[in-house]
Amino acid sequence: MHPNQEETPVTYPATVEDRSAPILSVRDLHKTYGRGPNRFDALRGVSLDIREGESIAIVGKSGSGKSTLMHVLALLDQPSEGTVFLDNQDTRNLRGKRLNGARNKTFGFVFQQFFLTGSQTALENVTLPLKIAGVGRRARRDRAMNALEQLELGDKAKNKAIDLSGGQKQRVVIARALVNDPRIIFADEPTGNLDSNTGRVVEDILFALNREQGITLVIVTHDEELAARCDRRIHIRDGVIVDGEQAAA
């Protein structure tokens, strides 16, 4: 291809049986780390469709490839081989600002380790994705406050993150994930650092967002009870899907 010639977006057509295309599809994903004797194949030919409004659990033992799959699905990492389609668009054509924009606009993230800045307030932590998106200061504050109030944390907006309980921190993380009105929330062991009662509250919040707002929910978890609450469970072992729906080639 000539260096000045634009790439033509590649699309993956829905099958005749599918009346609506998946929001997210992956085809024949491979992800390899290292070379030679140090080579590790984290993903080995994974194909999967995710429909808008679904809740999906990706389960498997440590080292099975489940977190790698989530990072590739969320466009946080690139596959060594294979393709990720977002709204039928081949994401290999997304670069730089376009990639960051698509990720920031479409996805929200909830991680086990919170990744909050302890010295900043809950409100300041929630506004971060809006800063990245270039939203003005007043609009950032209004939208962040709305998200905190939705999570019943409006009264904690000025509290520093370091002073919040574990459950409050995770709700701040969910508020941050919601602030850009994402279509998909990726949650990596979202209750792993919480006691069972607090964890159940966090689960209920996530599934309420899925049920009431139609946000697609993709959860990576070891927790069988949490996985059982999802519409589908995708079991990964040694980098391949061994239980769950494998997309047609």
Rank of each mutant, 00 (worst) to 15 (best):
R140K: 12
P182H: 12
D49H: 03
T221I: 05
K97F: 04
D195P: 14
L217C: 13
N93Q: 10
M70I: 09
F111P: 04
R98S: 12
F85Q: 09
T216W: 06
S80V: 07
D49L: 03
A139C: 02
A175N: 10
G82M: 00
G53A: 10
I241M: 06
D18C: 04
A57I: 09
R237H: 10
A161Q: 03
I162W: 06
A139D: 07
A147R: 01
A187P: 11
K97E: 15
D87V: 08
I215M: 07
E52G: 08
D77A: 01
S20T: 15
R171S: 12
G154E: 00
Q213I: 11
G45H: 08
G82W: 00
V135E: 10
M1W: 04
E17W: 04
P129A: 06
S47C: 07
D18H: 07
E152Q: 09
K105S: 15
M145I: 08
L226N: 15
D181G: 02
P9A: 12
A102M: 14
N100I: 10
V202K: 04
G101N: 09
R19M: 08
R171E: 12
G154L: 00
I185S: 11
A42L: 07
L153M: 14
S196N: 06
D49T: 03
R19F: 01
E225D: 12
F186N: 11
D243R: 01
D238F: 01
T91H: 01
G192V: 00
T106D: 09
D41P: 04
P37M: 08
E225I: 06
N159E: 10
I132D: 11
E54N: 08
G214V: 04
I162D: 15
